[in-house]
Every structure is written in C-alpha cells, then in structure tokens.
Design a protein around this nucleic acid. Structure first.
Lengths: 193, 193
DNA sequence: GAAAAAAATTAAACTACTTTAATGATTACT
DNA sequence: AGTAATCATTAAAGTAGTTTAATTTTTTTC
C-alpha cells in the first residue's frame, strides 16, 4: 500500500509516533476505481471517507432535468465523500465518479471513530482540515454571488491551473454553473483578445 | 455575563467539568453591538471569533459596483467571524454588521489557542462544528448551482422561517443572489396563486 | 405622532446566459 | 488504425433575471 503520501499529508498538521502511525495505517483500506467508475451513487450509503493518492474524482448532483452540477473536484491529497451520508449513514445526495483511474485510501465510520478515541490528535487534524474547507467553500459561495460567469472562469483557471488541463471543459462548466455552450462562447471571446 | 447559552451550546458536543468550564468562560469577553453597528470591516484584522447570545448579524462582501452579497446570517447560537482573517491575522474580506442589537461572547486567537492546549476536547467541539458548517455550505453551493431563484427563495423560507420574519427582504435577496426587485416579482407571483 | 428615511412594489427596456440543433474536432475503444 | 463515441464550436431564437426610475408602503427617529 502506498502510504507515504497520506502520512506526509497528516504530518503537515499533527505529529504521529510510530505506534499511532501504524494504528492509523491499519485502519485504512486501499481501493482503485477505473475511469468512469463510481465511488458513490445518490441514494447509496457513503460507507467511507476517501483520501486520493492518485487520480481525479468529481462529486456532483443531477437535477430534475438531468443536468449535472459539480460541487467539488478531488485530486491527489484531497479527501472526498458525501459527508452527511457518511456521518449519519443515510442515503447520499451526491454521485462520485472518476474522471481518471483513481487510487484511494478509505476509512470506514467505525474505524474513524476508533481513531478519534485512540489518537485524539486526529480531532485536531480533521478540525484544521474542515476549517480550511470551510474557508474555501465560503469563498466560492461569495464568488458565485458576486462574480459573472466570465470572472468565475478566469478565477477557476487561475486557482486550479493543473485541473484545467486534466478536465474536459464541460466538467468545468458544470462546476461554474454555466452551460458548456456558454463557456465555449466565453473562451472564444478571450481567444480574440 | 450570560454564559448559560454558550455552556449549553458546548455541552451538545462535549462534556466539561467545572474547572474546564471556568477556564473556558474566563477566556470570553462580552460585547454588545447596536443595530447597524459593525463587528468587522473589510480590510480590518478579525481579532475574535464571536458567539451570538442575542440578535442578528450578517457577513457580506461589497463588489466593484457597490452591491452587497451576503455569505451568511448569524443568529442566537451561531459563531460568526471572518475565519481566514482570524486564523492568519490578515485583512478581512468581509463586513459584519448588526441587523438588530446583538450581544456576543468573543474569544481572541491567543485565547482560543490556549483553550485548545489546555482543554483538547475543544478540538473535537470545533471539529464537529466545522464539519456541520461544511455540510451546510456544500448544500448551499449545490442549490446555487441547480436551483432557480424561485426554488432558492422557497427553500430559504422553508429552512429559516424565523429569519424570514426578522430580516428585510432586500437582505434575503442579497443572500439568494438576486435583486430585491426580482424577489418582489417572485413574491407577487406566489401571492396570486 | 410627524417627518424623514428605508424598504417594497410596479412597469418597461435591457442583457447575461440558456436552449436547440447542426457541424467539426478529439478522444477512446477493439 | 479505424470506427464509434464523446466533446467543443457556432449560430439563432428564447428566457430568467437586471436595470432604471417612479410611486407607495413600512419603519425609524426625535
């Protein structure tokens, strides 16, 4: 199991001794999802939180007209899952599937609870993680309220230059909240400048 | 100082003994903000996280055209602040002002750091709080992407019926991401039905 | 309780973004 | 390597939501 990445990730926020690190690793399970494969479907119970070692996932909903709306992308070093479904073990609101073949380390709810009990430092770890995620999301909400589609697109490619290259345009449109057609029109406008 | 509310709030997630509760309380400072008074201005450093005992605040940005965009309302039992500014002690992105006279309990960054050190249980407390906030915000992002203005308004009054009565319509519009004029048109449509 | 200030309503002209549909370009699969 | 499938582009007509400005209603203040 490729554990270096996740140990490095954790060590950015908390320091683990050897025993703690071993316990943590023992609670993880590895999984690989092929391109276009699903990690989660709306209505399923989200059994695990998932740390991405390699690849790219998208978390999205499908509205009454069948249109997809992406609430987040996940790449290396990110955690993904349907948090509400995971915590309450109730049906998920979101689909999660792979835009590339993706390798995950998974932790189940009982194992995470055990981890919090035995190594309370992980409370801090996830506190800081959620704190950062909160800031990022609030920022996105603010930009969705105050920016035009054009500004949101420019901000996206500025903030996630790696993603822009890896992800089809229509997925970016589904993240920005516009149609692929309109995104194409915006891009044409920039190309002319 | 009216501490009952905050102790009750904390006890929903963690149990404090007498010493811990006393330490916690000793780190808090009370503050009252008059209606229309500011807790924070864009560009200021956010010195405290703020728990609302009574009243109503709004956190908002002002865009290049002078239009206000509300990222969140805060009422009794909620924490408010500009989290990024608070954590990094850098200039705030948001304004926070009072829609009603508001009573707060404030904790400074050094005091919060001290609290995490001396009573690590608070790591769990804030971990759970941010976790819940994350879910709420992700839900809002999803609805901003997939709902029409009409659906978002109906969802808002369904989810926050207390707020609808306390808050001027134009503030709700600034939260939903539409103009007060358009909100008025929507309401007229409902009234006719 | 009167005057001033802020908020809500209405209407009409306008625009950012959508929809549909057809064509061309890339990417994926055997 | 070749065929199918997916994705991006373009154009034209349509719509959800904005803008401006005038009027009415409600709330605040002294």
């Amino acid at each position: 199991m490729n554990i270096d990445l996740i140990l490095q990730h954790v060590s950015r926020y908390i320091q683990l001794n050897k025993n703690e690190a071993e316990l943590f690793i023992s609670l993880l399970k590895q999984k690989t999802i092929p391109r276009k494969g699903f990690l989660l479907r709306q209505g399923d119970i989200c059994k695990t939180e998932n740390f991405i070692i390699r690849g790219c996932l998208r978390t999205y909903s499908i509205d009454e007209n069948g249109v997809e709306h992406i609430v987040m992308f996940g790449i290396e070093d990110w955690w993904v899952g349907d948090l509400y479904s995971f915590l309450s073990q109730s049906p998920a609101s979101y689909f999660i599937d792979a835009l590339e073949e993706t390798e995950l380390l998974q932790i189940s709810k009982p194992h995470l609870d055990e981890l919090y009990e035995k190594v309370p430092k992980f409370e801090r770890f996830f506190r800081v993680l959620f704190q950062n995620a909160f800031i990022t999301q609030q920022n996105r909400i603010n930009q969705n309220l105050s920016f035009t589609a054009e500004q949101r697109y420019l901000e996206f490619i500025h903030k996630y230059p790696q993603l822009e290259l890896r992800i089809p345009q229509k997925q970016i449109a589904a993240y920005l909240g516009i149609t692929p057609v309109f995104l194409s029109m915006l891009r044409k406008k920039f190309a002319l400048k």
